[in-house]
Simulated assay, not measured.
Amino acid sequence: AAFEGRFEAEGGVTVLIGPNGSGKTTLVHLIAGVLTIARVKGRVSVLGANPYRDHWVKKYIALARQHPNTFDAFYPVRSVLRLYAALKGEDPDAVDEVLEKLGLSSCMHPSIKAVNLSFGMKRKLEVAKLMLSRSARVFLLDELIGLDQPTVRLVLDFLRAKTEEGACVVVVTHEPRHLQLLGGRVVVLKSGKVLRVVESWRELREFLERNLYEVTIVAEGGDPRVLEGVAGVERVTVEGGPRYVLRVRCKIAAINDLVKALMGTGARIHRVEYDEISPLFEP
């Protein structure tokens, strides 16, 4: 996907969210200076320098990719990370400590290569690169998928500590729960452009509470007409039967009331589905 427009981030956390193909990864790679130069039009400035021309600035940029880099997959993991640390001007001896924190002690053995690791372990190696970049001023984390919860907590704690030192952190995520954990401002991307900027978790929550959701309920029995009288409901559509699909447009506060009202008529609920952050992507 392409990214077109203006994006700025200073100290603190900025979270990028958007549908697939909205330009999130492209934007992160643009900031990191890893896109093919022919694809870059316009101006990119990181710490006052152009990462496509002023290569010294890359020492201060740390990137954890969503899809682990494969160029070093056939070399011993520990050796690759020690080289990475040295190139960043960091202490290569810190590698063993970071691997141990991430539960990757087995990767210290010289026979272990990234090509033989699971996707989750490869993602942890990307996190290791972040944690080895202790002098970086810009931290870019492209998604938290593939990471177990202890690792998610570890990397988020690390990044929060870096923001307290004045670093700029940009994180891509699809998970609503990560928005609250990360805090900071939220930049919503759609079709390669910035759709809206929400400055805080409180502002985000208020935005979601006052907007409408598309809710799908699969049920059987009962009387779905009862939903038309629930406060906060704008539209109810019924499809099929005796097992039917309800498509409801309503506020998030009304969803529990919908289920209770339907069950009160004797309905059996099979499934309730809605996207917790879908209103953010509407114009």
Rank of each mutant, 00 (worst) to 15 (best):
L195A: 03
L195M: 03
V171S: 06
T173P: 00
G120V: 05
L208S: 09
I145R: 15
K122M: 14
K124Q: 12
G184T: 07
A128H: 14
V194Q: 07
V194D: 01
W201L: 08
V171G: 02
L132D: 12
Q149A: 11
L179D: 02
L140C: 11
V197Y: 02
L147F: 07
S191R: 07
V172I: 13
R205F: 02
G184L: 11
L156S: 09
I145L: 13
D148I: 02
A128Y: 14
A128L: 08
L189G: 03
K129D: 13
E126A: 10
V152G: 02
R160A: 09
S200R: 07
L195V: 00
R134V: 15
E203D: 14
L147V: 12
E164P: 03
L154F: 02
F158Q: 01
L130W: 10
T163F: 09
R196K: 15
R205K: 13
L141E: 10
L204Q: 08
R177N: 02
S133V: 08
F207N: 10
E126S: 06
L125F: 09
S191A: 06
P150M: 09
S133R: 01
R205N: 07
L132C: 12
Q149Y: 13
V172Y: 10
P150D: 11
K122N: 15
K129A: 12
S135A: 15
E143L: 14
L130F: 11
Q180Y: 02
R134N: 11
F139I: 12
V152P: 01
R160I: 03
V127E: 15
P176A: 04
K193G: 07
P150G: 10
K162I: 03
K162R: 13
L181E: 05
G184W: 09
T163H: 10
E126V: 02
L159K: 02
L144T: 15
L182P: 00
D148F: 08
R137K: 15
V152Q: 11
A128W: 13
E143S: 13
L208K: 04
G184C: 10
E164L: 12
Q149M: 13
R123Y: 11
R123C: 07
L130H: 03
T151I: 15
L208Y: 05
R177T: 09
V127Q: 15
H178R: 00
E175G: 00
A136M: 06
H174P: 01
L195I: 01
R185Y: 07
L156H: 05
L144W: 14
P176C: 02
L144D: 15
T151E: 13
M131Q: 08
E126P: 01
K162C: 03
S133N: 05
A136H: 05
V186C: 05
H174W: 04
E126Y: 04
L159E: 04
Q180A: 13
R134P: 09
L125H: 11
E175T: 00
S200A: 09
L159V: 03
E203S: 14
L125I: 11
P176D: 03
L179Y: 03
L140M: 11
